[in-house]
């Protein structure tokens, strides 16, 4: 709680510093609009920002949910079947190394410039962290706990449900956190590339007009959407933590 307050304080200080800097140092507002100008832009174009913000938000949320489902399903399947792992893991690993976000234009070629293209790309981007998190989680069961299950004659299903799944959740949640950010990024990059609608489009449009305040206003909204998506996962983590009660194993970085 104190950490959260400190972070809030740091952010507030940063915003104040920013406003002061722009006021006292003669910077062109085209280069760096002060926070007050961003607030103004938000108030000035509510309909525009709301419309495009909604488009971005619901595509990102839907993309995230579908990616989470697909990632968990395939992750569980890969954990269960060695044959499937041998067949698919080389591709998964290869895709981990290449800059996946650069593949956005392919989705335009395949699916046109509409929402399906952006969502498919968002799912593609967000899917991998979930897959990896699920697999790492299911593989990360303490060996002693598995031995205990064997001693007690637990069935495969009981072992999965009672032991391996609870052990997997922290890793899975870490994957979902990354996926939440990735889904939003996928939609925004898709909007950059398709230039049709959404906050990414507003950002590009504003940038080309030199409307820095509008760009920053759209980016502020993007960050807010990102935090809400992240918050969804955080809420799941909190709910899980209430049941788990023990300290969760540390998540991953990056």
């Amino acid at each position: 709680m104190r950490g959260a307050l400190a972070s809030l304080g740091a952010v507030a200080a940063l915003v104040a510093l920013w406003e002061a800097a722009v006021r006292f140092i003669p910077i062109s507002p085209n280069l760096l609009a002060p926070p007050s100008a961003i607030a103004e832009a938000l108030a000035l174009h509510p309909a525009l920002l709301l419309e495009h913000g909604w488009a971005t938000a619901h595509e990102a949320l839907l993309g995230f949910l579908l990616a989470a489902l697909a990632g968990m399903a395939l992750g569980a399947a890969l954990s269960a079947s060695a044959l499937l792992r041998q067949a698919l893991m080389p591709f998964v690993l290869a895709l981990q190394i290449v800059p996946k976000m650069a593949l956005a234009p392919l989705f335009v070629v395949w699916l046109g410039v509409g929402a399906p293209c952006r969502m498919a790309f968002a799912i593609f981007i967000a899917f991998f962290p979930v897959l990896i998190g699920t697999m790492a989680g299911l593989a990360g069961t303490e060996s002693g706990a598995l031995r205990l299950c064997r001693v007690l004659g637990a069935s495969w299903w009981q072992t999965l449900w009672r032991v391996r799944l609870p052990y997997a959740v922290p890793q899975l949640l870490a994957g979902l956190k990354t996926a939440a950010t990735m889904a939003l990024l996928g939609v925004v990059i898709g909007e950059f590339v398709t230039a049709q609608q959404g906050l990414g489009y507003v950002v590009m449009f504003g940038a080309s007009l030199g409307e820095t305040a509008l760009v920053l206003a759209a980016i502020t909204l993007l960050c807010a959407i990102g935090l809400v998506l992240y918050g969804v996962v955080l809420a799941a983590e909190l709910a899980f933590g209430l049941w788990y009660k023990a300290p969760l194993p540390a998540g991953e970085f990056a």
Binding site: G144, A145, R147, L148, V163, P166, W243, Y244, K245, A246
Partner: peptide, 9 residues
């Protein structure tokens, strides 16, 4: 066993 292997949750 050597470790208690209690389930943490």
């Amino acid at each position: 066993f050597q470790d208690a292997t209690l389930l943490p949750w």
